[in-house]
Nucleic acid binder design. Structure first.
Lengths: 225, 225
DNA sequence: TCAAAAGTGTTGGAATTACACCCATGA
DNA sequence: TCATGGGTGTAATTCCAACACTTTTGA
């Protein structure tokens, strides 16, 4: 608990960043540059510095490796099996992060093509093999995401400012992996008073849909489903 | 993520062990032996070794410092603020542990008086000031415990093998901090089929109460309250 | 006029809450 | 006999799940 000791594990962070693109949940991956897993895909992350908190380290590594900033960030679980990294002993604090697809912070990962060549968004349903124990991390992150969507308003971190009720429902269906009854869904959302109808509508080759925004853009405990 | 680097935080574990003694929730504390917090009370814990997992480190430190073994153990959260330990940078993986009051593993903490002089069970409602950021750890541990009691059968880790329905209800009331309706509580517990009535009864200066045991002594997701 | 998504209520069943009296024992 | 906790059922309410048709627009 105090004083300097013998050999010790090092501390890293790994971040599972999710977003919803065209009705499908996507995960942000980077290509490993060094070591035994070189060339494989992995979660962005890296060593924790001496003078930064774990959250700060997660944000720093995420921005440095992918250009994605200003995400919702939540600590998930700490993975510390001695065998998880074959080279040396790394204890990794895993994070879940959420960001809207159209957010300026994450489009950078696509536009600055040279700098972020080894960065990609992949559909969660079609992930490549992942380095380290990152498949287990992603599995835990998905479970957390699914659970928290049902009893919090975290959805606001995945959608743009304005959206239709249909888009909100599609997002829930994409993440939870099941269909929801449209009438019951809207009834519930309305009764919770989470949303504010906007003046604008979204047009398409069908009846225009009213746009809505979240009343509050901060985490709240709300029983949604 | 790979290779050896510069100065790095060290990794420790801290364990918040709860039990229920005479209708009150208790927490296991140890006296700090070295450093700035010497003499103050703290959660048992210590450095993680190179060749052990985090769970193993938690069990090892718990047993070494308090003699308490064979507990239910669950990772809680990782605390990594640079200022949490004034001496050096320690990232601490916090655990919640549960054990029945009459369990052999924890009575050792009381009987081997010499070896475990600096170990004590304290009522959660009357905790002394704690070293490091352990007050925050305990707060998070309590929140986790309260939440999980309502949707899992973890209660079996806090009660002896055989108990009355009244004792089970008292345990819930002690931890959740609110009274429960006796008839509704029993109805719910019975309908879930979690318990097995035993032949024996508990006697007192009142009508004897039937003893029960948990049907399964392993973690299960069950909506209890 | 057609296709496509938006919008809207009701009903039956299930689950939850509130609530009061008698029972068996030891002192 | 009294004090103490053990044991039980019902009615009202709330919550949840199932279900279909009309509307508005662009093509």
């Amino acid at each position: 608990m105090a004083g300097a000791g013998g050999p010790a594990p090092t501390v890293a962070v790994d971040v599972a960043v999710f977003t919803v693109v065209s009705r499908a949940l996507h995960l942000l991956l980077v290509q490993v540059q060094h070591g035994a897993f070189r060339g494989q895909w992995a979660l962005p992350g890296g060593r924790v510095g001496l003078d930064e908190s774990l959250d700060e380290a997660a944000r720093r590594e995420l921005a440095a490796q992918t250009g994605v900033g200003d995400v919702y960030l939540e600590q998930l679980y700490t993975f510390g099996s001695p065998q998880r990294d074959p080279q040396d002993r790394v204890v990794s604090v895993a994070y879940v992060a959420l960001t809207p697809h159209d957010h300026p912070g994450n489009t950078r990962a696509r536009t600055d093509a040279k700098k972020y060549a080894a960065v990609t968004w992949r559909r969660v349903s079609r992930l490549p093999p992942l380095a380290y124990d990152h498949q287990a991390v992603v599995k835990a992150a998905l479970a957390r995401l699914r659970a928290k969507l049902t009893y919090t308003n975290l959805a606001y971190n995945l959608l743009p400012r304005a959206f239709t009720l249909g888009e909100l429902q599609e997002m829930y269906e994409a993440i939870l992996g099941r269909r929801l009854d449209r009438r019951n869904f809207r009834k519930k959302i309305h009764s919770l008073g989470l949303l504010r109808p906007l003046a604008r509508v979204r047009r398409g080759s069908h009846r225009p849909a009213r746009l809505h925004a979240f009343q509050h853009r901060r985490p709240m405990i709300v029983e949604i489903l």
